[in-house]
Simulated assay, not measured.
Amino acid sequence: METPTLRPPLHRVSRTAIWYWTVRAALGWLILIAAQVGWLVAQGDYLGVRVSGLVITVVVAAAHLAVMPQWRFRVHRWETTPTAVYTQSGWFKQEWRIAPVSRIQTVDSERGPLERLFGLANVTVTTASAAGPLKISGLGQDTAQRLVAELTATAQATAGDAT
């Protein structure tokens, strides 16, 4: 049996995740921009400061929306083998994780409303690790379902006490 080693996983998440991350981030930026527009049209002094704040927010938002989703897509990866689950995630703070299949306790899939709209799902692999569960975000719904079934079957067939 091969010994799992920390290495970059092979599979990327769904390309649709780029659009999902963009829309999710844009919604947050729109809330901030709406608040700033409300502040801009309110009566009061400091019009130059309010306009400058809005312009800076729009520029930072545009840069964030242009860079972050593409960057995350290049970083986020996953892979399963008969002996381990590998994940890589993040964009500023990047994390590589590996979990032996023999340590898997549960495998879950979840989809929020926005993820359902984009046909995406997340898979969470819970182990006995103090580092917490491994999360694979941005998978296509079909891929996530197959992955959950595969990991469940592999974990059940693997000798170990999952602790």
Rank of each mutant, 00 (worst) to 15 (best):
63 A>M: 13
142 D>K: 04
159 A>R: 04
20 Y>S: 06
74 R>L: 12
11 H>S: 15
16 T>F: 09
98 I>F: 03
113 P>S: 03
49 V>Y: 11
127 T>M: 00
110 E>R: 14
41 V>K: 05
34 A>K: 11
88 Q>Y: 13
106 T>C: 01
162 A>Y: 04
4 P>S: 10
151 L>I: 00
117 L>D: 03
94 Q>C: 09
57 T>W: 05
102 S>M: 00
146 R>L: 11
57 T>L: 14
53 G>Y: 06
127 T>K: 00
46 Y>S: 12
77 R>F: 08
34 A>G: 13
90 G>C: 09
136 I>A: 05
158 T>W: 00
99 A>K: 00
138 G>H: 07
110 E>S: 12
92 F>N: 13
126 T>K: 01
154 T>C: 01
22 T>L: 14
141 Q>N: 13
3 T>N: 09
146 R>D: 08
10 L>G: 15
15 R>K: 11
75 V>A: 09
20 Y>C: 08
139 L>R: 09
148 V>I: 15
122 N>C: 05
125 V>F: 12
108 D>P: 02
132 G>Q: 04
136 I>C: 05
2 E>L: 10
150 E>H: 14
102 S>C: 00
81 T>R: 03
17 A>P: 13
34 A>T: 12
94 Q>D: 06
68 M>P: 01
22 T>H: 09
80 T>N: 12
140 G>F: 08
61 A>K: 08
21 W>P: 02
139 L>D: 05
68 M>Q: 09
12 R>H: 15
4 P>V: 08
137 S>V: 14
115 E>Y: 06
26 A>K: 03
150 E>S: 03
78 W>G: 02
106 T>Q: 05
144 A>E: 01
98 I>Q: 08
13 V>M: 05
112 G>I: 03
8 P>R: 15
91 W>F: 15
11 H>D: 14
150 E>K: 07
27 L>K: 01
155 A>L: 04
68 M>A: 15
3 T>C: 01
102 S>W: 00
5 T>P: 00
79 E>W: 01
51 V>R: 13
24 R>D: 01
44 G>D: 02
28 G>L: 04
101 V>A: 03
11 H>W: 12
10 L>I: 14
40 L>D: 01
48 G>A: 14
140 G>T: 04
47 L>A: 11
130 A>V: 07
26 A>T: 07
129 S>A: 14
156 Q>P: 00
101 V>P: 04
88 Q>G: 06
65 L>W: 11
47 L>M: 13
69 P>Q: 09
105 Q>D: 02
69 P>G: 04
102 S>Y: 00
38 G>S: 04
31 I>T: 10
86 Y>V: 07
69 P>V: 07
